[in-house]
Amino acid sequence: MTVSVRDLRPGVPGDVEAFARVRRRALPYMLYTPESVLHHLTHTHPATRARSLVAEEDGEVIGTAQIGLVRDSPEPGQAYLNVHVRPDRLRRGAGGLLVRVAEEYLAAEGATKLLSWVLDTPADRGFAERHGYREGRSAHFLRLDLAHGTLPPLEPPPAGVALRTAADWADDPRPLFALDAETTADEPSDVATEFTDYAAWVAETWRHPLLDRDLTTVAVVDGRPAAFTAAYTDDGTRYATAMTGTARAFRGRGLAKLVKNASLHRARAAGRTEAFTGNDTGNGPMLAVNKWCGYEIRATEVRHVREIG
């Protein structure tokens, strides 16, 4: 049996669907649809030089990789390389071949530091170490049973605070861009991030096919968006929060709890049965909010880094 690596071919029937299936099986804590896979490939800023790769065995897609340069960081030369192989097709050489092809491409594009998320299992960490990667920060995947779990009761917003949805900014989402940029810059990470390109944010984030603007909840204070939780939904019953943050001037007032709980209640009312989110393991305040909501840790991944010449 021969394993080969090639680019994802959006024009080939079933190719994007196969990519999404592999991702869902390898990483069931995140939402992947053919539309989201295609959006990443076609709407990521050209400066990232992004590619989506697949590993095939006898014509069957068994592994995937999403790779590119990190554009939104003040530190030059960084690149991302995230590889996933179907759990029932491990140890066939697909992962190693994807890494080799990805590294060669990123090095040619000027990358000097490669960043890769790796599941916190002995097999996955061992694979990363054998390929020269060292561990960095870690993050948890969390799950909440919306169908059978108990959410905290809904409470009215405090005086001076109003709850709205992202749909209210459909004509001009720039205030939400400013809030996302400020909160993302403060998020614990080993990769500093600065959102400065509004047009790119609109293309990549605001128009993301999984973004549910009716469930994305925003707390407004004195007419200004002060806190938000960005909701993703798939074409089934799953819901995920892609980002939750509060502007610096409004922290410590319970607004993250407020928007997240409100969004979860509306998601359950809309028929969503599972909720997922992710947390840097060092982000104590957000971990506390998620624990209060009822989320439980289901898995951990560790960012691994490799310096290349």
Results as ranks from 00 to 15, higher is better:
residue 222 D to N: 09
residue 18 A to N: 01
residue 262 A to N: 11
residue 145 D to N: 15
residue 308 I to R: 06
residue 157 P to D: 12
residue 93 G to M: 06
residue 277 T to H: 04
residue 147 A to Y: 04
residue 266 R to K: 06
residue 230 A to T: 11
residue 30 M to V: 13
residue 126 G to D: 05
residue 121 T to F: 02
residue 291 K to V: 14
residue 290 N to K: 10
residue 271 G to A: 12
residue 287 L to C: 10
residue 82 N to E: 12
residue 42 T to G: 00
residue 202 V to P: 01
residue 302 V to S: 02
residue 275 A to M: 10
residue 258 L to T: 05
residue 72 D to K: 01
residue 168 D to V: 09
residue 192 A to W: 07
residue 87 P to H: 06
residue 306 R to T: 01
residue 71 R to F: 07
residue 255 L to G: 08
residue 12 V to Y: 02
residue 73 S to D: 01
residue 86 R to L: 12
residue 98 L to C: 05
residue 269 A to F: 03
residue 8 L to F: 04
residue 14 G to S: 07
residue 106 L to P: 00
residue 231 A to D: 05
residue 108 A to I: 04
residue 181 A to W: 01
residue 139 A to H: 07
residue 265 H to C: 05
residue 228 F to N: 13
residue 42 T to E: 06
residue 176 L to V: 08
residue 37 V to E: 08
residue 141 F to S: 11
residue 204 E to D: 14
residue 152 P to I: 00
residue 130 R to M: 06
residue 39 H to M: 05
residue 242 A to H: 10
residue 286 M to R: 04
residue 123 A to F: 03
residue 5 V to A: 05
residue 88 D to G: 06
residue 194 E to K: 10
residue 279 N to F: 00
residue 85 V to A: 04
residue 163 L to I: 05
residue 19 F to W: 15
residue 223 G to P: 00
residue 84 H to P: 00
residue 223 G to E: 00
residue 260 K to R: 07
residue 86 R to A: 14
residue 123 A to G: 01
residue 62 I to Y: 10
residue 248 R to F: 09
residue 210 L to G: 00
residue 60 E to N: 08
residue 166 A to V: 01
residue 264 L to R: 03
residue 32 Y to D: 13
residue 126 G to K: 12
residue 157 P to C: 08
residue 267 A to R: 08
residue 277 T to M: 14
residue 17 E to H: 11
residue 195 F to P: 05
residue 249 A to Y: 04
residue 136 G to F: 01
residue 50 A to S: 14
residue 169 W to N: 07
residue 143 R to P: 01
residue 280 D to M: 11
residue 107 A to M: 14
residue 258 L to D: 02
residue 152 P to S: 02
residue 70 V to R: 07
residue 171 D to P: 01
residue 187 E to R: 10
residue 166 A to K: 02
residue 273 T to R: 13
residue 2 T to V: 06
residue 66 Q to T: 11
residue 260 K to D: 03
residue 152 P to A: 03
residue 129 E to A: 15
residue 269 A to V: 08
residue 224 R to A: 14
residue 254 G to M: 13
residue 184 T to V: 12
residue 5 V to L: 10
residue 135 E to A: 15
residue 45 H to Y: 11
residue 12 V to R: 14
residue 283 N to W: 02
residue 293 C to K: 11
residue 297 I to E: 14
residue 144 L to T: 12
residue 229 T to S: 15
residue 218 V to M: 03
residue 227 A to K: 02
